[in-house]
């Protein structure tokens, strides 16, 4: 089976956000594989181990993403592709990323493409479905279970807490929801092997794309932090009285009940 994983490098969830000159500062920040993409990678590995084939993990970004690609290889992916847009693209959005990924994938004959259902930084959840649509293949988002039997696929999809059991077929793109699996940590032999696995670097030129072809359709004009919360009120006294006071405060002061 020819399997592809779409991966994004994101800020570690532990990071606080600092804004410098109107942009989110990356100084000293730790980066990780987007947590939802980790589920996608793990699922890809399980599918390959069961059905055979090869996994290529692909990312659009800059050379810094090599580290996360190596991590994906250490987990068990077979090949990695970095589409480096740093020198070519000034402003990008989900339209840009999807267009580039689809251009890369269009002649690769993928059977299965996996991605996270959302990236924890931008949080739009657009790229997966956009890529599927550009490739003309079906997709199912926020999946928690994937069963493949020949070309027949049964998927469980999380829909705001309820589950849909969906039947579809390969080729297919799915996006991973939490609960799909428990991503493995790279093993030491895995890390050693990863160093020798192929990591290909491409630029827009290699995909016959011009910057104009992938020009963003939206533009960020400002980034700001939420207003600082003032210290709240810790209630005092007997527990029973505290509870009475709280209910009264919520009713009369905060007016939320």
């Amino acid at each position: 089976m020819n399997i592809f994983v779409l991966m994004k490098r994101t800020f570690d969830t532990e990071e606080k956000i600092v804004i410098n000159n109107g942009a989110v500062s990356e100084d000293g920040a730790e980066f990780i594989i987007n947590p939802y993409d980790e589920y996608a990678i793990e699922e890809a590995i399980q599918v390959r181990d069961k059905h055979g084939g090869e996994i290529t993990v692909v990312t659009v970004g800059n050379e810094e993403a090599e580290k996360e690609l190596r991590t994906a290889l250490a987990m068990g992916c077979d090949k990695a592709v970095l589409i480096n847009i740093e020198d070519d693209v000034e402003e990008s959005d989900q339209y840009t990323t999807a267009k580039i990924l689809a251009e890369y994938l269009k002649d690769k004959n993928p059977d299965l493409i996996l991605a996270g259902n959302v990236a924890i930084d931008g949080g739009s959840g657009q790229v997966g479905p956009r890529v599927a649509e550009l490739l003309g293949i079906p997709y199912v988002t926020t999946i928690t279970k994937l069963d493949i039997d020949g070309s027949k696929v049964t998927v469980v999809r999380d829909v705001e807490g309820d589950e849909e059991i969906i039947e579809t077929s390969l080729p297919l793109l799915v996006t991973a929801q939490q609960g799909l699996n428990e991503p493995r940590y790279p093993s030491l032999p895995g890390i050693m092997k990863a160093k020798k696995k192929p990591l290909e670097e491409l630029e827009l030129d290699d995909l016959d794309l011009e910057e104009d072809d992938v020009e963003a359709k939206t533009k960020t004009i400002e980034i700001f932090l939420p207003p600082k919360k003032e210290a709240g009120k810790i209630l005092q006294g007997e527990l029973v009285d505290q509870v009475k006071e709280l209910v009264s405060l919520l009713h009369t002061e905060a007016k939320v009940v």
């Binding site: 956000i17 930084d121 949080g123 963003a216 359709k217 004009i221 980034i223 939420p226």
Partner: peptide, 22 residues
């Protein structure tokens, strides 16, 4: 003169204002 859309980023640790260029 623009319609400006505010949305959370980093799951609400920050916000961005966006416009469409389309």
């Amino acid at each position: 003169g623009n319609l400006v859309f505010t949305r959370p980023i980093y799951s609400g640790k920050a916000f961005e204002k966006k416009i469409t260029t389309d």
